[in-house]
Design a protein around this nucleic acid. Structure first.
Length: 514
RNA sequence: GACCCGUUAGCUCAGUCGGUAGAGCACCUGCCUUUUAAGCAGGGUGUCGCUGGUUCGAUUCCAGCACGGGUCACCA
């Protein structure tokens, strides 16, 4: 049956509800319980009708039985069976007969156990809370098509209940991260999303326009430089869950907008931040999943500290069978070429080492592993190592082959920072679109003096993938980015558009709201 | 951005070596007062993603396009 026909039938039933004197879209209902509360009563529930309850939810299954019938009601906690009988509902039995799968209802009645043992509510009062005009996906296979699942996440959330658990876990993860930092004297702050200069990471930005200021602004690719300004101001421990935007490709581990937790601590160095991060992530993973050792896509990831630590120089050296600790650009270029690794012309020793690392080492980093000894060239915001000047005090955390975190002993020498920015500007002039921009105000802040500071950024979406055993980042973002859907407009909208009415989104900003 | 795969009923999927198409569920009608993928009897499903080409004839073959998935590139 065509969609139009199915929807027309449901519209007709809507009129029949009104003919019964029932407003099909109610204003409120006051449930006393959730489905899970009742199921938890267990053995206290017998075949004898007992305690009365009021429940509200969506009908997800109907099994008619003549002058009786069963349904399953889905609420925020789960599903419970309902039993309708003509002799109990009396005049309201007509309401039961008008129900469709998908309708929102409120019910009241005693709880009992059926002959087959299922805890069930015998409905004695039935209120319609909202009609459903669209047919639901099939009860057995449900909704599988990934495109529909992501575009119509509202359907995904009631058809695939595991999706609810995924986002509850994500929320527990975020709560766990926040609680850990709050308990250690960290202050949660909010910094600009719209920035006149973008910085703090290597990435291409989204550009937008402020009309009143008549200027271009960038959606932030990072909040790093703002948080460190706060450290200059004397807020010794700050963090932000930062929605960042990077104008790059999309794949299983990249969405154009994503969430980075960044936290900065005065008087700390990268070693302090390593220890802090072990505790932070281990406790948040446990808050989300209940355990510290995760099974991710068939791999065991144990986040109980301490985690493995490897040197980037040593790891690449071991992978190529040659010592690369001298950071000899010619040697690294030869090694990259001999393994078919392409790099842009002009890539320095640091970039070459990074390319070799990404190709040869990173995919094998399954268990949580800190990588240290990054070349200075690829880390313009980090301090040089106390041991050697061409390496920086930095760590990256990898697990399941993905980068999860990145941290430095933050550069707080304004002259060194200015020189690093100047080198970035030179690369920019050479055509590197991702090189960072000079931020004079940030250097000015450092000139007032920034205490020694450790800073970390953690990819919250990727961590959420691990704790929910999700293969794709789209599974842990409620509305992942997709190309705009076409052909969804109703015929009436099309007619309006042709008659000259402004198309949605086509109006001048500011003209539609007073 | 490149390559591969996919797009058929509301949903999940089959199928047509080129002759305008099927199943299950859902839906409609009847029966059925403890069922649960309820059951029994009967009923109708559709721009076969879009636009062209080849052909007497295209859902099927070819090309382009759109959207999705995957791999790669990009992304420290």
């Amino acid at each position: 049956m065509s969609l139009q026909e199915l929807m027309r039938q449901r519209q007709e039933k809507l009129a029949r509800w009104r003919a019964l004197g029932v407003e099909p879209y109610a204003y409120r209902y006051e449930p006393t319980h959730h489905a899970a509360d009742i199921l938890a009563w267990g053995d206290q529930v017998t075949a004898e009708p007992g305690r009365r309850v009021r429940l509200a939810g969506r009908i997800v299954a109907l099994r008619g039985h003549g002058k009786a019938g069963f349904a399953h009601l889905l609420d925020g906690s789960g599903k419970v069976q309902l039993y309708f009988r003509a002799d109990r509902l009396a005049a309201q039995f007509e309401r039961y007969e008008l129900l469709d799968v998908g309708d929102w209802i409120g019910v009241e009645g005693p709880v009992f156990r059926t002959r087959t043992g299922e805890i069930t509510v015998r409905v004695e009062d039935l209120e319609l809370l909202a009609r459903s005009l669209r047919p639901l996906p099939e009860k057995w296979h449900g909704l599988r098509d990934p495109e529909t699942r992501f575009r119509q996440r509202y359907v995904d959330l009631f058809m695939n209940l595991g999706v609810r658990e995924t986002f509850r876990r994500r929320a527990r993860l975020v709560t766990g991260l926040r609680r850990f930092l709050d308990e250690r004297g960290y202050l949660e702050v909010e910094t600009p999303v719209l920035q006149p200069l973008y910085g703090g990471a290597f990435a291409r930005p989204f550009v937008t326009r402020h009309n009143a200021l008549d200027t271009d602004l960038y959606l932030r690719i990072s909040n790093e430089l703002y948080l460190k300004r706060l450290i200059v101001g004397g807020l010794e421990r700050v963090y932000e869950f930062s929605r960042d935007f990077r104008n790059e490709g999309m794949d299983r581990s990249h969405n154009p907008e994503f969430t980075l937790l960044e936290y900065y601590q005065a008087f700390a160095d990268v070693h302090d931040m390593m220890a802090l991060t072990e505790g932070l992530v281990a406790s948040a993973v446990e808050a989300a999943a209940g355990v510290r050792a995760l099974d991710y896509q068939g791999q065991r990831l144990d986040f109980a500290p301490p985690w493995a630590r490897i040197s980037m120089l040593d790891a690449v050296g071991a992978a190529v069978g040659e010592d690369v600790s001298d950071l000899d650009a010619a040697k690294l270029a030869r090694l990259a070429r001999s393994r078919g690794i392409e790099t842009r012309p002009g890539t320095g020793a640091g970039g070459l080492l990074d390319a070799l690392f990404g190709e040869l080492v990173q995919p094998g980093l399954v268990k949580p592993t800190f990588v240290v000894d990054h070349p200075a060239e690829t880390s313009p915001l980090a301090r040089a190592s106390r041991d050697r000047p061409d390496v920086v005090e930095r760590f990256e955390l990898f697990a399941a082959g993905m980068e999860l975190a990145n941290a430095f002993s933050e550069q707080n020498d304004p002259e060194a920072q200015r020189r690093a920015f100047e080198q970035q500007m030179a690369r920019r002039a050479g055509g590197d679109e991702e090189a960072q921009m000079m931020d004079h105000d940030y250097v000015r802040a450092l000139e007032y003096g920034m205490p020694p500071t450790g800073g970390v950024g953690i990819g919250v979406d990727r961590l959420a993938m691990l704790v929910t055993d999700s293969r794709s980042i789209r599974e842990v973002i409620l509305f992942p980015q997709l190309r705009p859907e076409e052909g969804i407009a109703e015929p009436e909208d099309e007619a309006e558009r042709e008659a000259g009415a402004p198309a949605p989104g086509g109006a001048e900003p500011g003209t539609s709201s007073a």
